[in-house]
Design a protein around this nucleic acid. Structure first.
Length: 418
DNA sequence: TCTGGGGTCCTAGGACCC
DNA sequence: TCTGGGGTCCTAGGACCC
């Protein structure tokens, strides 16, 4: 048996933990740049605020109903997440942390899975203040189905698919679009073929699924039938790509400002590489105009380069990134977004040395980067940075409704009146 | 006026090799 | 006029996830 624990309305719940005024009130959290709605409390969902909707489209609802609005505060959410995950992993050591607010756990051999799940739920609530739901099933995909039901149709927040009849009954009531692994494209395709529920889907011929939805779709179908095809990944693997990108606060033409953003993104990528002790062999830079403007004039310039020797050297990566930027930048366009991706990542200690290259981090540079990284960890991001990074970050984003970093910054500790 | 940011996996097709 | 058969590697694009 596999269990899936999922934090309810995670970001909104994090805001609530430190501000009880928000209890029972509609709360939403916005994406970077205060652009879209990316989390909603149940009360906000009831008001009809949809996931991913641009804020300006629901402004009237927000004002009319006194919806509490927050900018993203990832320092807070990341810290709350690691508290929740550490509690769960104590109670169930075989755990795969799947996302910031979800974890799969191996419940094989557990005599009373429901009791364990209830215990987890109350422990997490007591120690962190975060409400969670847990679904249990024979496969990951069925655990997802169970979690879906736990959230919507139970009071306890716990639901298990333990036998055949329950499972069939649940699948008959599950819309095809809610299946893990079936997104908007496949839902549309399946729907137009008369497939409306998860049950309809498992009745389909295997070959038809393979031909129309590749091996990935077939795995999903098998998992829904109770056959394990997606295994629990307990051991953290290094990321295969690392991406840093942002929309600008406003449209930008000026090469200098765009360059500053690319320097900042490449710097961040190098930091992320060093944090996981790895090096990248490939780097890609992209710049885009606003894709919501006239589609004919939309420009998305991107280009990648193979690095001859894998590296996590900030200065080297920044230099390549800027060179790539120079070759994709077109004058007089108004840019809205830029990004840097590094990939083909290898562990730093497994690099084949090459005497003709000298951008490998030397001992001296390693000491330098260790110092820079630890100062920035302690004092705040970018306290020490390359000059090309810019001073004002004029390209940077809007964050108008930011909550304090209650758990990660001394100056933002919650104040209690005595 | 205002539209997120980070990932994964699979496939088809082209370049190249013998 | 006739024009093989087997590989590998890389990239772009498309699907998905939270």
């Amino acid at each position: 048996m596999i269990a899936l624990a999922d934090c309810n309305n995670f970001y909104a719940s994090c805001e609530r933990v430190f501000n009880p005024v928000l209890n029972n009130k509609p709360v939403i959290v916005l994406s970077n740049n205060d652009g879209c709605v990316i989390a909603r409390s149940n009360e906000a969902k009831k008001l009809g605020i949809k996931m991913g909707v641009p804020v300006f489209k629901v402004r009237d609802i927000i004002i009319k109903n006194n919806v509490y609005v927050y900018s993203t505060n990832f320092a807070l959410y990341g810290d709350m997440s690691s508290r929740v995950m550490s509690l769960l992993s104590k109670m169930s050591p075989e755990i795969e942390i799947y996302s910031i607010d979800e974890a799969f756990m191996n419940f094989t051999g557990i005599k009373n899975p429901t009791a364990l799940a209830l215990d987890m739920k109350s422990t997490v609530k007591k120690w962190t203040g975060i409400p969670i739901s847990i679904g249990i099933g024979p496969t990951k995909t069925l655990a997802k189905v169970a979690n879906y039901i736990a959230k919507r149709k139970t009071n306890s927040g716990i639901f298990g698919l333990f036998n055949y009849n329950d499972t069939i009954h649940s699948l008959k009531n599950l819309p095809i679009s809610e299946i893990w692994g079936v997104g908007s494209r496949y839902s549309k395709m399946l729907y137009s073929n008369g497939i409306k529920t998860a049950y309809d889907f498992i009745c389909l011929d295997k070959n038809w699924v393979l031909n129309n939805m590749t091996i990935v779709g077939l795995k999903t179908q098998e998992e829904l039938k109770g056959h394990k095809k997606i295994s629990l990944e307990i051991y953290k693997n290094r990321k295969k790509n690392i991406c840093t990108s942002r929309s600008f606060g406003k449209k930008i033409k000026d090469f200098k400002l765009i360059k500053e953003s690319i320097v900042a993104h490449a710097t961040r990528c190098a930091e992320k590489l060093r944090r996981q002790s790895s090096c990248a062999r490939y780097i890609s830079v992209s710049i885009q105009t606003n894709r919501f403007d006239n589609p004919k004039s939309y420009y998305h310039g991107y280009q990648s380069k193979i690095i001859d020797l894998p590296t996590n050297n900030t200065i080297y990566l920044v230099n390549i990134a800027v060179k790539i930027l120079e070759s994709i930048y077109i004058k007089d366009l108004e840019y809205k977004k830029s990004g840097v991706i590094v990939g083909d990542i290898v562990p730093a200690n497994q690099i084949q040395l090459n005497i003709f290259n000298n951008h490998q981090i030397t001992e001296k540079q390693r000491v330098l980067y260790d110092a820079v990284d630890s100062i920035n960890d302690a004092m705040g991001r970018d306290k020490i940075r390359l000059l090309g990074h810019g001073i004002n970050r004029k390209w940077s984003l809007k964050k108008e409704n930011l909550s304090p970093r209650y758990t990660t910054d001394w100056s933002d500790l919650l104040k209690i009146k005595v």
